[in-house]
Amino acid sequence: MNLMQDAPNVVSEDGLRTLLAEGHSADVVCRVTPKRTGAQWSGVWTVHCVSPDGETRRLLVTARNNMAAREFKTINGLSSFLAGLGASIISIPMFEGEVASHKLDVAG
């Protein structure tokens, strides 16, 4: 059983990269309002892949356990992940429940 194929509401990192190249967006959802500790901001963010028409949302899951949401606990980790996907401008929601959408820059 291929969990990534059989679970339509989730996506792997490789699947996310493919879908972003096809015009989907990556929504960053703030799950826990971050707090500043020294020079670092820590909270909880998840990433969702959204179809161009907005009808389909898939939660990014870990490679180790396909059904566990991939959570980012620091702004540095989240921004590094988004930059690695090819995002040229990164927006990070700072309050629980807020969402920031990212699309790849096809011109760049």
Rank of each mutant, 00 (worst) to 15 (best):
R36Q: 15
V106A: 11
I75W: 00
I90G: 01
L19C: 02
G108M: 11
R17E: 04
L85A: 00
T62R: 09
S51T: 07
P34R: 00
L82Y: 01
A39Y: 13
Q5G: 10
N2A: 07
C49S: 14
E96I: 06
A7R: 14
H102V: 07
A69S: 13
S42I: 09
M1T: 09
P93Y: 04
E96C: 11
G15S: 03
L78N: 00
C49G: 05
S12H: 06
E22Y: 11
S51R: 03
A7L: 15
E98I: 02
A21E: 15
V28T: 06
E13M: 11
V10H: 00
N2I: 11
N76Y: 10
M67I: 15
S12A: 10
M1I: 12
G86A: 01
M67V: 15
L85K: 02
K35F: 12
G77Y: 03
T37A: 12
V61Q: 03
D27A: 13
T74A: 09
G108K: 13
L59N: 06
G84T: 11
V32S: 04
S12N: 05
C30D: 02
E22L: 14
I75A: 06
V50P: 02
L82T: 03
P93R: 01
T62M: 09
V29M: 07
E98F: 08
V29F: 04
K35Y: 13
E96D: 09
G108I: 13
S42H: 13
L82R: 01
G97L: 04
A7P: 03
N65A: 11
G86K: 01
V10I: 15
N65K: 14
W41I: 02
N9Q: 12
S91R: 12
V32F: 08
C30Q: 02
E71T: 07
S25K: 08
